[in-house]
Every structure is written in C-alpha cells, then in structure tokens.
Design a binder for these strands. Structure first.
Length: 253
DNA sequence: CTTGTGTCCTGTAGGC
DNA sequence: TGCCTACAGGACACAA
C-alpha cells in the first residue's frame, strides 16, 4: 500500500501539513502536486477507490460504518473532510516523493508510453511498437510502456470497436487496422471519461462522492460472454496473458 | 530482447 | 449446508 517511503510513519510525517496545489494524472497514476515540491502518487490497482468524505460527527455515523473495513488509508484534510482510500484487494499503491527523487518502485512511470487520448498517438506509433512482435495484440494494449492508462476493460472494448480479434499477432496488423485501433482506443477512453468510468461491482471503482460510474452500461463485449453482440453473434471469452478477453466473432476478425 | 507464468490479496459466485 | 475451484478494474518478478 504505502510503497514510498517504505516506512509508514515517515510517509505520514512527510505528508502532514502539506498543501495540495493541483491534481493531475499520468497513465493510471493519480498525481497530487503538493507544496515544497513534493508529489503524492496514487494507483488504485484492481479494486481501489478514492472518496472524499466528511469527518464531521453528524454525517459520520450515517456513512462511515460500512466503509471502515476496506479503508486502507485516510488522509485528513482541513475543512472537515478526508480522502479515504478504500481497496479490498490491496493492490493499490501510494508514493510520496520530492523533486528529483522519484522512487525506484515508481520507475515504471518514467518508461510509460503515450496517452491514447493525446496527440501523437497514432497508427504509426502503434506500428513502431508492434513491428515484429508475435504476441497477441491485446497483450500489448495492456503494456503501459505502449498504451498507458489502458486496462482490460478498455483494451477489450477498443478491439471490438476496431473490429480486431484480441488474439491477432500484433506485428501482423495492417496499416488500416492500426489506424482503426488507434482511433478506437482514443474514443473508448473518451467515452469512459464521459461516463465517469466503469463500476462493475458494489466494491471497486467509485466516484469521489461514492457514486457509480456509468460506462458499464456501454460495454459491448467486456463481461458479456454468451450474450448477443449487436450484430447477432454471441460474445466469446478467451484467456490471453492470464486475462479474460472478450470478443465478437461476428464483427471482429 | 521477447514471451509466458506465477504471485501479491480479498471476496464472491457457481458446481457438486 | 459446506467445500472447492474459478474469477475479478493491475503490475511486477522471474525463467526460458
């Protein structure tokens, strides 16, 4: 959970009294820019959620009982509020570090690839990364050095939108397919943002106010094994790289 | 370098 | 009812 500094007390001491100047993102990391040149980086992992809760007595009794079990970290804020990091499976991670001292455990952030929703993410970019690679294209979509911010949900959905089966060899995709794929990735992420993310279960991802995302209502293949695609064919599930991959045999080739 | 597998951890759903 | 397995938003270490 607290990965840096490794010592939790040191982490807490370093954070106490700091002011949040701005909030940003890089890939799947949330980045809180603090004063004194510090940064709080936070990754939700598989089941994490970050909630802004009231610490005042009256509202507290009503809402805090259920959550205490899954709460791993609570950051007390000024003004009677707190940021609560809940995470059932404890795959989430937090890091606190100063300028020019990005921890080794966060090295992955330095090698992170381009954001699909930003300029420069194109068919050519994908072609350069995919060239000569024999692994399934979906595996590479999950590689944060290539497509940062893309996870299992959006990889599956992007491939469906692009009409490409997840098990296709990455290096053998044609120019046109790469073009469709780069667009699909951008579009599916933008749609995900538009619908405030994907809340699949009761636990897991939530909005800061505890509300649910709505993108799960727009999933076309993810988690829909056996259901009919809009084209009429039945969605299939296969394992790739240990992850479930969903596709429609009718509209993906 | 690439690729595939196992692991961290907790909880739920389904088969028998 | 209870036990067992499979599976779940991610990312790493490690072996071949």
């Amino acid at each position: 959970m607290v990965r840096h500094p490794a010592n939790v007390s040191k982490f807490a001491r370093g954070l106490t009294g700091r002011r949040i100047k701005s909030i940003g993102r890089r890939g799947k990391y949330l980045l809180f820019e603090l004063d004194q040149g510090k940064t709080l980086a936070l990754h939700l992992g598989m089941s994490g959620s970050l909630r802004l809760v009231s610490t005042e007595e009256k509202t507290r009794s009503a809402m805090s009982k259920v959550r205490t079990e899954r709460e791993r970290i609570r950051l007390e804020l000024s003004g009677g509020q707190a940021l609560s990091f809940e995470d059932t499976r404890v795959f989430g991670k937090v890091f606190l570090y100063g300028k020019d001292e990005m921890p080794k455990t966060l090295e992955g952030m330095r090698s992170m690839g381009r954001e699909p929703i930003e300029r420069g993410f194109s068919a050519g970019y994908l072609r350069d990364w995919f060239r000569g690679r024999k692994t399934a294209v979906k595996n590479l979509l999950l590689d944060q050095r290539i497509c940062c911010g893309v996870g299992n949900i959006y990889a599956n959905e992007a491939l469906h939108r692009a009409g490409i089966r997840p098990n296709r060899q990455a290096g053998k995709l044609g120019r046109q397919e790469l073009d469709r794929l780069s667009r699909a990735l951008r579009e599916v992420l933008q749609d995900g943002i538009r619908w405030c993310g994907t809340t699949l279960d009761d636990d897991g991802y939530r909005l800061p106010d505890g509300g649910r995302g709505e993108f799960q209502r727009h999933l076309r293949v993810m988690g829909r094994e056996g259901e009919r695609c809009r084209c009429g064919a039945k969605v299939r599930r296969v394992k790739l790289g240990g992850r479930s991959s969903y596709y429609c045999p009718g509209c993906q080739s």
